[in-house]
Nucleic acid binder design. Structure first.
Length: 581
RNA sequence: CGGGGAGUGGCGCAGCUUGGUAGCGCGCUUCGUUCGGGACGAAGAGGCCCCGGGUUCAAAUCCCGGCUCCCCGACCA
C-alpha cells in the first residue's frame, strides 16, 4: 500500500483527553476513530492489525478442533429470560423493541445463543464433544469505558463454547483451550501470564485469566517469586499462607478501657500488642438488602477483607459496606465491636439478622484483642471457639505483596498490574440445564452437557500489546500483529532515481510476498521517520540519494537503535532475513 | 452511581475575570525553494464558539436548564 493512498492521517498531537499510550498512539497513527464513549471505528491500519489478530486466533481455534460459527448480535429477550440472566446480567443488558413491539437485546455474550443452538442439535453422547466459536461484535453498556480500546462498550470478541459429556471431557476441552490460548498470545508476540481467577456470577469451578503485564492495566495479579513455582492469581482470587500464631494457653477474657481508640493500629499501639494479635470487625450487607441484614465479618487486624472472596462466602450476594444507621440499628458499636457476645438472642443484636463470617486467620490465633461491644472498651484474650463462633469460617482475606505463596515453596507473592486479554471458564451444567441442552448417554440416561466458555478481547489485545510495546516515539508492534511488515520510505522525492528505485523496490518486495507500506509522499525525511516510528512497523527500509551513491539501502528494526546499510541488489532477501530475525 | 475537569476551524490551544471586529500553532489548498529526524517564503480556504432558553442596544464571554466527552472511585460473568 502506498501511504499517499492509505486512508487516514497521522496526527502530530494526540487528543488532549487520551492519556494512555495505546489510546494516544492508536489515535495519532490513524488506527481508530472514536465515535462515542467506548465506541470506536477501526480505520484501515487498525483493521489490518485486528484482522491479523483474528486470523491467528482463528487458526489456533481451528487447530484445537473448535468450529467457527456466527450468531446474531440482536436477539430475543426470551432467550435471556430462559437462562435467568435477563434481569441479573451486569452491566445491564442493552435492550430495544422491534417493530412488532417484541423485546430484543443486544448480546453482550453468547452462552444463551450457543446453548440454544447446541440443544437443537445434541441428541446422543456420540455427538459430543464439540466446541463452537465465533469472532464477533459484543455490546456491554459499561458504566465507565476508559483508556481508548482497553475498556470499551462495543468490541470484537472471540468467544468459544465447549460441550462435553462428563467432567473428564470438560477437563480435556478446557486444557485444549488453555493450550490454544498460550499459542495465540505467543504467536501474537505478547507475553501473558495465565493466572487463577474468580469465576464471579457466571459460576463454575475453574477459571483462568490470561493477563498481559502492563502498568496501565486495571487488574492486580500476584505471582510467586520462586522460579520453580507456577503460582499466579488475580488479586480477587489470590490465596496466601497465613502464618499460624505460636500456640498459647488461652488466657482469661478481660475487659480493658481504651478511651478514644477507634482504629486497629491505635488499639495495637495503646495496648502494646502486635496488630496480628487483634481481631477487627467489618460490617457488610447484601447489596440488595433494605431489611437490615448485617454480615458481621471478623478478620485478623493485620489483614484486609477481599470482597470477591466475601461475595463467594455470601453465596454470590454482592456485599456492600453497611451504613452507620444499619450498624447502629443492629446494636453494634462501631470501633468497639466483636463477635464475642454476638449470640445474645435478645435485644437488637438478634442473630436472625446477623450472619457471622470469620476469616480462617482468626481461628488459629489465640488470645486476640477484640471489641467489647461497649464504647471505649476492648477485651483481651478472645479465643475462637470458646468466646465466639462464626456461621461461616473461610478465607476472605486480601493477599498483599510479600505474603507467603500458598503453594509448597519458599516464594512470596510479587504484585503486578496487568490487562486481562483472555478468560476461560468451566461452566458446568448451569446453561445446559436452563436451556435444555441434554443428550442420551451410553447407559440410556438423559444428561446435561458440561460446558466451558473461552473469551478473548481482540481490540483489547491490540491495545494491550501497544501498552506493553511502545517508546516515546510510538508503537513498537510485534511483527505478527502489525498492519504491515515493512515501512519503506523514499527520501529525496525530487530525485527521480530515488523515486524510481524506491517504487521498483516496493514492487519487488510485494512480489516476494512482503507486506509493505510504501511512504511515497512528498514529505521531508523527518516527517517520514517520525511517522515510521509512530506506526511502529517491525522494519524500516530507506531508499535515499545518499545510500544509492554506494548502491545501498538502509534497514532499521523498530526495536533497534542502529540502522544498517545493505546492497540494493540483495535488498529483498535482506528484508526477508531481517523479518525472520 | 459519587467526586473532579473540559466542550472555540481536522488536531493542540488562547480569548471568558472586566460583554462590543473570533485569534494563534500544527494540518489543509496553490506557487516557488528545500530534501537524513516533524524545512522556508508568498498567497489562500476553512468556524450553528456543544445545544436550548434568558439578561442586554449588543453574548464565545453573564444567568438558568440540558447534552456530550475525559479523569478518579464504585462497578466491570
Amino acid at each position: 500500500m502506498r501511504l499517499s493512498r492509505s486512508f487516514g492521517k497521522t496526527l502530530r498531537d494526540a487528543p488532549a483527553d487520551a492519556e494512555t499510550a495505546s489510546h494516544q498512539y492508536l489515535t495519532r497513527a490513524g488506527f481508530v476513530q472514536q465515535v462515542a464513549a467506548g465506541i470506536y471505528s477501526y480505520m484501515p491500519l487498525g483493521w489490518r492489525s485486528l484482522t491479523k489478530i483474528s486470523n491467528i486466533i482463528r487458526e489456533e481455534m481451528d487447530r484445537a478442533g473448535a468450529q467457527e460459527i456466527s450468531m446474531p448480535v440482536v436477539q430475543p429477550r426470551e432467550l435471556w429470560e430462559q437462562s435467568g440472566r435477563a434481569d441479573t446480567f451486569q452491566p445491564p443488558l442493552a435492550s430495544l423493541k422491534d417493530r412488532r413491539d417484541r423485546n430484543m437485546v443486544i448480546a453482550p455474550t453468547h452462552e444463551e445463543t450457543t446453548t440454544f443452538m447446541a440443544a437443537a442439535n445434541l441428541e446422543s453422547y456420540r455427538d459430543l464433544p464439540f466446541n463452537l466459536y465465533q469472532i464477533q461484535t459484543k455490546f456491554r453498556d459499561e458504566a465507565r469505558p476508559r483508556a481508548g480500546l482497553l475498556r470499551v462498550r462495543e468490541f470484537e470478541m472471540k468467544d468459544a463454547y465447549s460441550f462435553d459429556k462428563d467432567e473428564e471431557g470438560l477437563d480435556v476441552s478446557f486444557q485444549a483451550m488453555a493450550a490454544a490460548y498460550h499459542r495465540i498470545f505467543s504467536r501474537a508476540g505478547i507475553d501473558v501470564r495465565m493466572v487463577e481467577a474468580d469465576s464471579g456470577p457466571i459460576g463454575g469451578k475453574d477459571s483462568n485469566e490470561f493477563v498481559l503485564l502492563a502498568e496501565s492495566g486495571e487488574d492486580t495479579i500476584f505471582v510467586c517469586s520462586d522460579e520453580n513455582c507456577s503460582y499466579a492469581a488475580n488479586a480477587e482470587k489470590a490465596e496466601f499462607k497465613k502464618p499460624a500464631a505460636a500456640p498459647e494457653a488461652p488466657g482469661e477474657l478481660e475487659e480493658v478501657h481504651t478511651p478514644d481508640i477507634k482504629t486497629i493500629e491505635g488499639l495495637a499501639e495503646y495496648l502494646d500488642v502486635p496488630v496480628n494479635k487483634t481481631v477487627k470487625a467489618v460490617f457488610y450487607a447484601p447489596e440488595s438488602s433494605t431489611g437490615g441484614e448485617i454480615v458481621f465479618v471478623s478478620i485478623r487486624g493485620d489483614l484486609e477483607v477481599n470482597e470477591t472472596k466475601l461475595r463467594n462466602a455470601m453465596s454470590g450476594a454482592e456485599p456492600r459496606l453497611a451504613t452507620p444507621e444499619e450498624v447502629a440499628s443492629a446494636g453494634l458499636v462501631a470501633g468497639s465491636a466483636s463477635a464475642i457476645g454476638l449470640d445474645a438472642s435478645d435485644g437488637p443484636r438478634s442473630r436472625a439478622r446477623i450472619t457471622s463470617i470469620v476469616d480462617d486467620s482468626v481461628i488459629n490465633s489465640p488470645n486476640l484483642v477484640a471489641g467489647a461491644n461497649r464504647t471505649d472498651y476492648h477485651l483481651r484474650n478472645g479465643n475462637y471457639g470458646r468466646d465466639f463462633e462464626g456461621d461461616i469460617v473461610t478465607d476472605i482475606a486480601m493477599a498483599q505483596a510479600g505474603d507467603a505463596c500458598p503453594n509448597d515453596c519458599d516464594g512470596h507473592l510479587v504484585e503486578h498490574r496487568g490487562v486481562e486479554v483472555g478468560h476461560i471458564f468451566k461452566l458446568g451444567t448451569g446453561y445446559s440445564e436452563s436451556m435444555g441442552a441434554t443428550f442420551l448417554d451410553e447407559d440410556g440416561s438423559e444428561k446435561h452437557a458440561l460446558m466451558g466458555c473461552y473469551g478473548i478481547g481482540v481490540g483489547r489485545l491490540l491495545a494491550a500489546a501497544i501498552e506493553a510495546n511502545h517508546d516515546d516515539k510510538g508503537m513498537v508492534l510485534p511483527g505478527a500483529i502489525a498492519p504491515y511488515e515493512v515501512y519503506l520510505a523514499g527520501l529525496n522525492t525530487n530525485d527521480e532515481t530515488v523515486v524510481a528505485t524506491a517504487a521498483k523496490f516496493y514492487e519487488d518486495l510485494q512480489s516476494a510476498g512482503v507486506e509493505v507500506l510504501y511512504d511515497d509522499r512528498d514529505e521531508p525525511p523527518g516527517v517520514k521517520f517520525n511517522d515510521a516510528d509512530l506506526i511502529g512497523l517491525p522494519l524500516r527500509v530507506v531508499v535515499s540519494a545518499r545510500g544509492l551513491r554506494n548502491g545501498e539501502i538502509e534497514m532499521k528494526r523498530r526495536d533497534a537503535s542502529e540502522a544498517a546499510m545493505t546492497p540494493l541488489a540483495d535488498g529483498v532477501q535482506a528484508v526477508k532475513t531481517a523479518l525472520e530475525g
